[in-house]
Design a protein around this nucleic acid. Structure first.
Length: 417
RNA sequence: GGGGAGAUUCCAGAGCGGCCAAAUGGGCCAGACUGUAAAUCUGGUGGCUCACGCCUUCGCAGGUUCGAAUCCUGCUCUCCCCA
């Protein structure tokens, strides 16, 4: 492993990873000298990681590459409580089974990004220590260090003080702070990082470790990544952009990045890829239509990171084939299989079948508005019956709108010519 | 514990006995323009139907009425004020 660069923190800041730091000088020094143990917590409230989590993952990767030891804390314990920070409403509490399932998933996902050989990185579950806490004892040892007055004035709770905050959630911060204490004690962890909405919780942890252990530890928050049109990063029309191929195909994932707003390209390249700042500058310098190349690079890099080089290139080839017309390699594009016995099939049904339309009414509208294409021909009849003659080599290409493509593949000895 | 307000289609928010599948805005979808970008303009936006139309939807369950999102009863939930 490479030795720690002297100004890792500066580099991270330059790439857009740093929002707030509790003690910049001291943290900078810590990261510049030897190996530090750093943790980020993830509550298993979702079935997978999505693009929103990716920044934190990249942060840990940067740290590991610089020779530090990342600790991934999965919140098997805290996930049972629900963090009210920055939220408008109480989050739906998950059942035990769901939490356990998500937790396992998380562990697997993280191994794609970090090297867990030896103790180069660690995964821990705070359920291991939180679930066995005893109430009165906890209040006496930990609760005494918290000021309700202070907590109530925290920005993170402001919204909730208007709409309602349960005592359950109000305790979240104590648990998270306690996590830091435990990690400090067990692993010598001296840094906690997290999203900017975690500032309050992180500071609480820093304070608690100082009070309980008499040690100086640090906190850093990562900016909330939004897109330039003001949305939270990682939301698409289809919902969250998952990094799990089952939930979000590599092709769609690739497309998500190709379609980012011009204004976001440079920022995203810095955050989501390991390209050097010089390379990024070279890619984005020109602006305008030239940014398309930068977007493709961004998409390729991030997709490779998440799904592997092979899948990324497949997606890239499919996109190139679809969008530049040269019908070359469509392997990465989405497919639906169709039995040849189902064959003459109404175009409306086919559009629904492939997911290009959500209902027959939707499909009808699509056609009536001129958005549906079969191959490169616009479909103008809503009663079109698709039969074998429409297929070439057992395949047919449907398009809805400008950028949604879908292949239909004939199976089982069909008389596809 | 007492008093008040409210729950409407993805969201916000009109509607207050028939003209309501439900105004308006946002979002989303499509078309034009483009660079698989943004902005802009246009159209669309519960399901089934070529269509007349039919079906499901206005917190939940009943009721009044020829007819209810709109009136009545009970229930659930949310917010506000007082304790």
């Amino acid at each position: 492993m490479s030795s720690a660069p002297t100004n890792l923190l500066g580099t991270l800041r330059e790439r857009g990873f740093v929002h707030q730091v509790t003690d910049e000088a001291a943290l900078g020094a810590l990261l510049a000298s030897g190996r530090a143990t750093v943790y980020i917590g993830f509550d298993p409230t979702a079935p997978s990681l999505h693009v929103g989590h990716l920044v934190q993952v990249l942060m840990l990767m940067h740290l590991q590459r610089a020779g530090h030891r990342p600790v991934v804390l999965v919140g098997g314990g805290t996930g049972r409580v629900g963090d009210p920070s920055g939220k408008t409403e109480m989050r739906q509490l998950l059942g035990e089974d769901a939490i356990r399932e998500n937790l396992e998933k998380f562990r697997r996902l993280f191994s794609r990004f970090l090297d867990f050989e030896g103790d180069r990185a660690i995964v821990v579950d705070n359920a291991d220590w939180l679930l066995q806490l005893r109430y009165v004892e906890f209040l006496r040892h930990v609760g005494r260090h918290f000021s309700v007055n202070q907590m109530l004035t925290a920005e993170a709770y402001k919204l909730r003080l208007e709409t309602g905050l349960t005592f359950l959630e109000f305790n979240y911060q104590l648990l998270q702070a306690y996590d830091f204490h435990v990690l400090h004690e067990r692993y010598g962890c001296r840094v906690q990082m997290g999203g900017s909405d975690q500032w309050g919780n992180i500071c609480a942890g820093v304070d608690l470790v100082r009070r309980m252990d008499g040690a100086e530890v640090y906190g850093l928050t990562i900016p909330l990544i939004t897109t330039s049109d003001g949305k939270k990063m990682g939301k698409s029309e289809k919902g969250a952009v998952w990094i799990d191929a089952e939930l979000y195909s590599p092709y769609d994932f690739f497309q998500y990045w190709v379609n980012v707003d011009d204004r976001d390209v440079e920022r995203f390249l810095k955050l989501f890829t390991f390209l050097s700042l010089e390379e990024i500058r070279a890619l984005t310098q020109e602006g305008g239509a030239a940014l398309r190349a930068a977007k493709k690079r961004l998409a390729l890099e991030v997709t490779a990171l998440v799904h592997g080089r092979e899948e990324a290139e497949k997606a890239e080839r499919a996109a190139a084939a679809l969008f530049s017309g040269s019908g070359a390699d469509l392997e990465g594009a989405p497919v639906t299989e169709l039995r040849s016995s189902e064959l003459p099939i109404g175009i409306l049904d086919l559009l629904v079948r492939t997911g290009l339309a959500s209902s027959k009414g939707d499909a009808r509208r699509l056609i009536q508005q001129g958005g549906a294409h079969l191959g490169d021909q616009r479909i103008d009849a809503i009663d079109l019956a698709v039969d074998a003659s429409r297929f070439q080599a057992g395949e047919l290409l449907l398009r809805a709108g400008k950028r949604k493509f879908h292949r239909v593949k004939l199976i089982d000895g069909g008389a596809a010519r």
